[in-house]
């Protein structure tokens, strides 16, 4: 699971994520850049992992809570809040974060295991106006 684009700031994300259930970081780099974290992930530090019941509602709640925690800790959270959280699949959500002149669309995907879910590094694309 090695990705090629770790940004320095994501290292602090990983450090914190290893302590807290839901990680913190700023968002990933430009459009469709894999959010970093991969090198550390390969070393065994998860982005964020949470114990979770296996029924769909519990999983959704877990995933959305982890997303909200991630957004709350984002150093670049300034802007127009959250305008959309939408399931893109059973294990991923697209979150829309309006900013001046643009909407940041961030995709969070999760690995679901029996009794737990793990958040992967999110990716972003930008819709400019």
């Amino acid at each position: 699971m090695l990705h090629a684009t770790p940004l320095g700031r994501w290292r602090s994300f990983l450090t914190i994520a290893a302590i807290a259930v839901a990680g913190c970081s700023d968002r990933s780099a430009a459009e469709n850049l894999q959010a970093p974290a991969a090198a550390e992930t390969a070393k065994g530090a998860p982005m964020a992992e949470q114990k979770c019941e296996n029924d769909p509602t519990s999983r959704s709640l877990c995933m959305i809570r982890m997303i909200l925690d991630h957004v709350a800790q984002d150093p670049d959270r300034a802007g127009g809040g959250i305008s959309e959280i939408k399931a893109a699949s059973s294990t991923s959500y697209e979150v829309a974060l309006p900013k001046e002149g643009r909407i940041v669309h961030r995709t969070y995907s999760f690995e679901v295991k029996e009794g737990s879910i793990r958040m992967n590094a999110p990716t972003e694309r930008v819709e400019s106006f």
Binding site: L7, A29, A30, D76, V126, S128
Partner: peptide
């Protein structure tokens, strides 16, 4: 700079500075 190529969308988040 990294994450904000001149040829890309210069409104991308890293373009505002990291």
């Amino acid at each position: 700079q990294r994450g904000c190529p001149v040829t890309g969308d210069t409104n991308a988040s890293p373009c505002y500075g990291t």
